[in-house]
Structure formats: structure tokens, C-alpha cells
């Protein structure tokens, strides 16, 4: 399946700012928007704390109550919870085995490499139909706001 993720420029900028501020630790948050089947549009993002105990430079975790809150906000705004974003400080924008093990169906996983506090390459990944492998999604930045 060839999936495409559209994102508003504001949402992309907010993610970038959050991930650069979080450097050298991994930072993370939620992606909200509308799903259209083979394409989806990210319209809002929610930044949340990385609550991973231990090495936050190489791991992230999101608190269950932040997850519940994100679902509520999506519902209130008439949007869907579409995925997660997180940074890979000083590492490539590729999913790790740990990312794969924890991945959920349907969600888009944005991974943004951050090198020396500068966000460089952004990629997006989704589990395939068999829920065994990641497939890369195409990201298109809208030239207008929604």
C-alpha cells in the first residue's frame, strides 16, 4: 500500500521546535487529523513529556494518562488520533527494532533525526497489512493552513 501523509506547515513547525528543544533527549507527541484511506492529513499536534525511566537519549515513552487525554482532545475537536512523532537524537530517521515491537496498527510514526539540536531528516512509517513490517509513508507539507 502506498500511503501519503499531508501535514500543515504549522504542525510541522511545532513538531520541529519541540524536538529541537528536547535535544539531546528524545521528545515525543501525538498527531491528530483526518484519515482518508490511502492519505491522511495531520492538522494538530500535541506535545507530551517523555516519561521513559533511564536513558531518554535513546528511548521514549508516553504516560497512559497523556494517551487518554490525547484521545479526548481528538474527540472534542472532531479529529482522529492518527499517530505518534518522536526524535532520534544523533541517530538516523529510521525505525528501530524497539519502534517496531511497540508499533500499533493504523498509526503513522513520524521519526525526525536531530543532529546537534537541528532537526534534519523527517520520515513517516506505518505497519503493513500483516502488522509485521514498517512501510515508509510519503510526507507532503501543505502550503496552506486548515
Amino acid at each position: 500500500m502506498n500511503y501519503t501523509v499531508l501535514i500543515t506547515p504549522e504542525s510541522k513547525d511545532l513538531i520541529q521546535q519541540h524536538l529541537e528543544l528536547g535535544y539531546p533527549n528524545e521528545a515525543c507527541g501525538f498527531l491528530l487529523g483526518e484519515d482518508h484511506g490511502e492519505s491522511r492529513t495531520i492538522q494538530e499536534v500535541i506535545a507530551v513529556p517523555n516519561v521513559q525511566k533511564g536513558d531518554q537519549k535513546r528511548r521514549f515513552a508516553i504516560a497512559p494518562l497523556d494517551y487518554i487525554q490525547a484521545e479526548r482532545i481528538a474527540l472534542e475537536k472532531g479529529l482522529q488520533l492518527l499517530g505518534i512523532y518522536h526524535s532520534h537524537p544523533n541517530h538516523p530517521a529510521l525505525p528501530s527494532i524497539h519502534d517496531l515491537q511497540q508499533a500499533l496498527p493504523f498509526f503513522s510514526y513520524f521519526i525526525w533525526s536531530v543532529q546537534d539540536r537541528h532537526a534534519t531528516k523527517l520520515t513517516s512509517w506505518r505497519l503493513n497489512e500483516q502488522l509485521q513490517e514498517f512501510e515508509e509513508e510519503k510526507i507532503l507539507v501543505l502550503t496552506y493552513s486548515i
Partner: peptide, 9 residues
């Protein structure tokens, strides 16, 4: 919801 930036597959 968790992940990490090492051990690439």
C-alpha cells in the same frame, strides 16, 4: 506508546 533510537532492523 514507546520506542527508541538504536538497534535498527
Amino acid at each position: 506508546i514507546a520506542g527508541g533510537s538504536y538497534n535498527y532492523y
